[in-house]
């Protein structure tokens, strides 16, 4: 067992964990964060995507001990003061989800994508979300949602 200290969605946690425990299992089973999904067991689908120190990672590809002293953000930590994150709002308004299973990972990957590239083209969005699979939407409205979020933050930046 190893002792780790992780900040998840702004809360500091300390736990004894097995070195082989995957971060996704730590988040779901130890911390009870159900918004992190397991979709494939093979690191293909991206449903478990979270941010580690602001950058997207598939939480099934890293161990909980690797998150020691790092900051993790899940979809449950995106809202601020009861307000949805702009990407969450855009997914809602653009009908960017149907069954919702891929959505937490898709949103986290999109947040990370927009941080790297605040004004991505449709093609750049599609490339940027390559690691996240969706079976319901055909990606069309997910791409639309990311564009919507980008345009709004562009407008905000221009206004400020």
């Amino acid at each position: 067992m190893r002792r780790i200290g992780v900040t998840v969605d702004g809360v500091r946690y300390e736990h004894e964990v097995e070195p082989r425990l995957l971060l996704v299992h730590y988040l779901r089973e130890v911390l009870g964060i159900g918004g992190v999904h397991v979709g494939c067991d093979t690191s293909n689908c991206g449903a478990c995507t979270v941010l580690m120190d602001g950058e997207s990672v598939k939480s099934c590809t890293i161990l909980a001990v690797q998150a020691d002293n790092h900051e993790i953000t899940t979809v449950q930590g995106l809202a601020r003061d009861g307000e949805w994150h702009p990407v969450q709002r855009a997914f809602h308004e653009a009908h960017g989800l149907q069954c919702g299973y891929c959505t937490p990972g898709m949103i986290m990957a999109s947040v990370s994508l927009l941080k790297e590239n605040p004004d991505p083209s449709e093609e750049e969005i599609r490339e940027g979300l390559e690691g996240n699979l969706c079976r319901c939407t055909g990606y069309e409205n997910i791409v639309k949602a990311v564009r919507m979020a980008a345009e709004r933050s562009g407008e905000r930046a221009a206004a400020s």
Partner: peptide
């Protein structure tokens, strides 16, 4: 038997409609 071998298309693999 896994999504490694079964190729579900990602966003770059399909067009806009």
């Amino acid at each position: 038997g896994t999504l490694v071998d079964y190729l579900i298309p990602g966003a770059p693999d399909v067009p806009s409609f």
